[in-house]
Structure formats: C-alpha cells, structure tokens
Simulated scan of single mutants.
Amino acid sequence: MSLEGLNPPTLATPDTYTQVMIAEGRRLVFISGQVAEDRDGNFVGAGDLAVQAREAFANVGRALAAAGARPDEVAKLQIFVVGLTLEHLPVIEAARVAVFGDHKPADTLLGVAALGYADALIEVEAVAVLDRQSA
C-alpha cells in the first residue's frame, strides 16, 4: 500500500491534514460514521464534545482494526460536528491525534445542525487503502 501526501505550493499547507492524498493499493476499507457509542450501543458523553470525540475516533480505530487496517492506511476522513466553532478545533484535533498520531490524511470538517443520533455532537467516517487482499 502506498499513500503519498501532497501539499502543493499553490495551496496553503495545513497543520492538521494533508491537501492531497494519492493512494495505491488493492483493497479499500470504508468505515461508516462513528459516534460516541460503546460496544453495547450505549451512548457516552452526552453534552461533552471532548468525551464524544475521543470515543468516536477510538471507534474508527476499532473498526479499522476489525478490517485488518491501520490508522496510517487511512487516506480520507470526514468529520461532522454539531454547531462547529473555532473553539472545538483543539478538542477534535486531540481526539484525532490519539488515534492517528502524526498521520494526517485528507479530511473534511463540516459543521452541521444535527446528526442521526439525538445526543451526538460528532461523527467520524474514514476510507483506508490497503495493499493486501485479506485481513
């Protein structure tokens, strides 16, 4: 598997993600939007973005592992946050770094009015590219 990150000189160089990810591999892994649910489906962290972000990103990590993928094989993230403000960015980044370390896939961060779960403040999707056929 090969992921090549590219921040072209014609675009700003972001601190927390990469502008372009070029992926070569044999297997794609699509992770559904993950929210702050524990393994039994119980919602955690009602009203607390930091708790929810940690759980949602941890769930992405768990889903990747179940597919035989690693966080450093993720090419793209989509992050949805209810009522997104600039003050939320450090909280989201801390939760992302806890799973992805210094790997910075391409990402989209969207502020939304609501998510599909009544108490959810954040939902995270991922796409990984693997060079192997099976986990």
Score class of each variant (00 low, 15 high):
112 V>K: 07
96 R>Y: 01
79 I>N: 03
105 P>E: 05
46 A>E: 15
69 A>Y: 05
135 A>R: 15
29 V>A: 04
14 P>A: 06
34 Q>N: 04
125 E>D: 10
85 T>R: 13
112 V>I: 13
66 A>T: 09
21 M>L: 11
26 R>V: 08
52 Q>P: 06
96 R>P: 00
53 A>F: 09
84 L>G: 03
42 N>Q: 15
126 A>C: 06
25 G>F: 14
97 V>D: 00
1 M>K: 09
72 D>F: 06
55 E>W: 00
32 S>Q: 07
100 F>K: 02
36 A>D: 01
38 D>F: 08
126 A>H: 06
53 A>M: 09
65 A>Q: 06
38 D>M: 07
106 A>Q: 10
78 Q>F: 11
133 Q>G: 12
79 I>G: 04
31 I>L: 09
15 D>V: 09
96 R>N: 00
39 R>F: 03
51 V>Q: 14
53 A>T: 08
52 Q>G: 06
34 Q>H: 03
37 E>D: 02
87 E>H: 04
125 E>W: 13
8 P>S: 12
119 D>I: 00
57 F>R: 00
104 K>T: 12
120 A>L: 04
118 A>H: 12
118 A>Q: 15
51 V>E: 15
75 A>E: 10
50 A>K: 14
119 D>V: 00
77 L>H: 10
64 L>Q: 03
14 P>W: 08
3 L>E: 12
5 G>L: 15
20 V>P: 02
3 L>M: 13
111 G>P: 05
58 A>Y: 00
70 R>H: 11
132 R>Y: 14
10 T>H: 15
9 P>W: 07
117 Y>Q: 07
43 F>M: 13
70 R>V: 03
74 V>S: 08
45 G>S: 11
132 R>H: 15
39 R>N: 06
104 K>N: 06
1 M>A: 15
89 L>I: 14
2 S>W: 02
11 L>G: 01
61 G>M: 01
